[in-house]
Simulated assay, not measured.
Amino acid sequence: MASTDKHGDTEYRTSSSTPAPAGVDYFKFDVILRFVLFAASLVAVVVIVTGNQTEVILVPQPVPWPAKFRYTPAFVYFVAALSVTGLYSIITTLASLFASNKPALKTKLLPYFILWDALILGIIASATGTAGGVAYLGLKGNSHVVGWNKICHVYDKFCRHVGASIAVALFGSIVTVLLIWLSAYSIHSRVPK
């Protein structure tokens, strides 16, 4: 009797030897973006902290009047939030580097990255919005309601530092959005179709 096994026919082979689709691997890009987030956070903090300026204000008599970030609670919150973001980005960069050679660990980390990245995005956005609101008052004043005068024509260096720091923080928030999208897309690509 002849055997009915068809060893050469591919439709009778089992697919147990073929690996499951691993999805698209963007962990190298993830590491780069997390390092860029760290750099943006560091630059934003350093620029606002080094923007101190002292001017002589003519009130009844000439008085040196300093402008420093720590005199405004919104700027203190901004520095604290961007410092936390920098620390977070260092930790997650190291975690991404550690997981880059371990596919099972990558898959487990992605949902956590999305969750924590979204939290950090909220922190960056709130701090940037708060600092931006105060910076706008310094630039334009609010003489219609409370009689606040603009100060950026006097403290020009300080205002330039604040503006540059806010711009870099906005860039950091865009990088964080890209990190969330990248993690979500990586999870989506790993789902069997």
Rank of each mutant, 00 (worst) to 15 (best):
T130G: 14
T130R: 13
I120P: 04
K193P: 04
S89W: 04
Y112D: 12
T93C: 11
L115S: 01
S83Q: 05
I48P: 03
V59P: 12
Q61Y: 10
V43P: 12
I180H: 01
D30P: 03
A80Q: 08
G141L: 07
G51A: 02
S173M: 05
W65G: 02
V31C: 04
Y12L: 09
P66A: 05
A2E: 15
K150W: 05
I166Q: 10
S126D: 14
T128K: 07
D5V: 12
D30F: 07
A67L: 11
V56P: 11
P21S: 14
H144A: 10
F113A: 14
D5I: 01
P62Y: 09
F78Q: 07
S186C: 07
S16A: 13
V24N: 13
S15D: 15
V49R: 07
G132E: 07
K106I: 01
F98T: 13
K28R: 07
N142R: 06
G133E: 08
L109G: 02
F69I: 00
G138K: 06
L97E: 12
S16Y: 14
G172L: 08
A95T: 14
I32K: 15
I90Q: 02
N101W: 11
A131D: 00
A80V: 05
K150D: 10
S183I: 06
Q53G: 05
L178M: 08
F98S: 09
K150T: 10
Y26G: 15
C152F: 01
N52F: 03
V191L: 00
T18D: 11
G163M: 00
L182G: 06
F78I: 03
I123P: 00
T50L: 09
Y77F: 11
Y155S: 07
A127I: 09
Y155D: 07
V175F: 07
P103A: 09
S3I: 05
I57F: 10
R190Q: 10
F69Y: 12
R70L: 14
V31I: 06
G23E: 05
F29H: 12
F27I: 00
H188S: 13
A39H: 06
I174P: 08
F38M: 09
K68H: 09
C159D: 05
L42C: 14
N101S: 14
G23I: 02
R70D: 14
V177C: 10
H188P: 00
K68L: 12
F29K: 13
K150V: 09
N149K: 13
I151W: 10
C159L: 05
V177T: 08
G86N: 03
S83R: 02
R160T: 13
G122Q: 09
K102C: 09
S41V: 00
S165A: 03
A20C: 10
D9L: 03
G147A: 09
I187T: 13
V175A: 15
D25E: 03
P64R: 04
A135T: 01
T72E: 04
F75I: 00
Y77S: 13
A118Y: 08
K68C: 01
